[in-house]
Simulated assay, not measured.
Amino acid sequence: MVVSATAVTLALGLATAHSANAIGEDDGRNPSEPGDAEGGASGRELYSQVGRSNIVVKQSGGGAAKPATGSLVSVDPNWKPPTCWYEPVATSKQLKAAVEEMEGTEKLLTVNSQRRWSEELLVETYDKGEPTYSAEGTKNYNLGKKGMFWRDVVRQGGEDDIEAADCSRTMFWQVANTVPDDPYAPTPEVLAAYAYNKIRVPDTEVELKPTAKSTVNMPTWVWLDKALFKDVTVRAELPDTPLYAVTTAKPVALHLEPGTTDAKTFPASGDCPVNEDGSIGAPYTKGASKQDPSCGIAYLRATSGKPFQLKASVTWEISWEGTGGAKGDLPDGTFETTQDMNVQEIQSINR
């Protein structure tokens, strides 16, 4: 598949054997978690980690006063982002320099997530042009040609998935302005799914009235302020390709679980929809004590030393758009928090 792009360039970061950096500078990329399988070298040598991607992500929106830190859980238990895909990793000059730095050492360079090669094997394959272990040989690292060497990336947490073995191609040459003709080539949808995993949403701590204690049989009004709860967008770009995707999470509903069967919710389903102005529920107003709230809870018995655990989860609708007008939807995500609810027996309360 051929796509248009600007000239292909990629700066390889310099790393020591003690470094946690992968190829490239940080620039919004996501470092691997401790314990990832890794192979490395020092100086100008390539250094890689199985769970490391060069995809750059940037989030905006959310509206919360505090940084959004909540990770979404897909409502589809069978959905997960792609386990592996291919990315550009080095220019001809960068690979040649990395191999030359290995001369006379026993260090290894990662050519895919399952293999690390010695300097001798790298020279045989990428300098002398001998095809080796599924790798297509190149003469003199293809110096003077426009393009880059690509290799696979395995999603963090996907190292033990059997699908990780599907991206089995050894590091290969790809002509500039193209992406591999391969089922595991990166696409806007792959980037959208990658961005989904990086979405961080505001804590779902709802506003309550009364704020200190609820009273048996008296409704507690629940709402989320529109100013503090807005769409979240995450843009994911793959450097040195024209590929990008913008994944948007839009809050569409609040679900309440009282933490006890001795309670009723408003509405009865516990699902409070988002209002037209973007808020959820409505704040209590003076004189509304005999009305049912549009979103709320009424506890039917008091707590006795141990508060009820009110669970509030927001459903986020996920959509994306990307390179070439591509677009689509991903499974809704949810984020849940728990709040203590103390309930007293008296039948009246100052509001």
Score class of each variant (00 low, 15 high):
residue 207 E to L: 10
residue 28 G to Y: 03
residue 206 V to H: 08
residue 228 L to I: 00
residue 192 A to Q: 07
residue 98 A to N: 02
residue 22 A to G: 15
residue 100 E to C: 00
residue 82 P to Y: 03
residue 258 P to G: 07
residue 151 R to P: 01
residue 138 T to R: 05
residue 249 A to P: 02
residue 271 D to T: 15
residue 216 V to W: 05
residue 332 D to C: 04
residue 307 P to V: 07
residue 145 K to D: 08
residue 254 L to A: 03
residue 63 G to R: 08
residue 183 P to H: 10
residue 173 W to C: 11
residue 52 R to N: 09
residue 40 G to R: 14
residue 40 G to M: 08
residue 117 W to P: 01
residue 286 K to T: 14
residue 127 D to C: 03
residue 140 N to A: 14
residue 3 V to P: 00
residue 30 N to A: 08
residue 275 N to E: 11
residue 201 V to F: 02
residue 230 K to H: 04
residue 261 T to L: 06
residue 231 D to R: 13
residue 154 V to P: 01
residue 299 Y to F: 11
residue 39 G to Y: 03
residue 224 L to Y: 08
residue 174 Q to H: 00
residue 233 T to N: 11
residue 100 E to P: 00
residue 213 K to A: 12
residue 6 T to I: 09
residue 351 R to L: 15
residue 106 E to P: 00
residue 173 W to T: 11
residue 113 S to A: 15
residue 335 F to T: 12
residue 47 Y to P: 00
residue 231 D to T: 14
residue 162 I to L: 12
residue 80 K to W: 01
residue 342 N to L: 11
residue 294 S to Y: 00
residue 288 A to V: 00
residue 340 D to V: 02
residue 242 P to T: 06
residue 174 Q to D: 00
residue 245 A to V: 07
residue 59 Q to V: 02
residue 56 V to R: 15
residue 11 A to V: 12
residue 342 N to V: 13
residue 32 S to H: 10
residue 319 S to R: 10
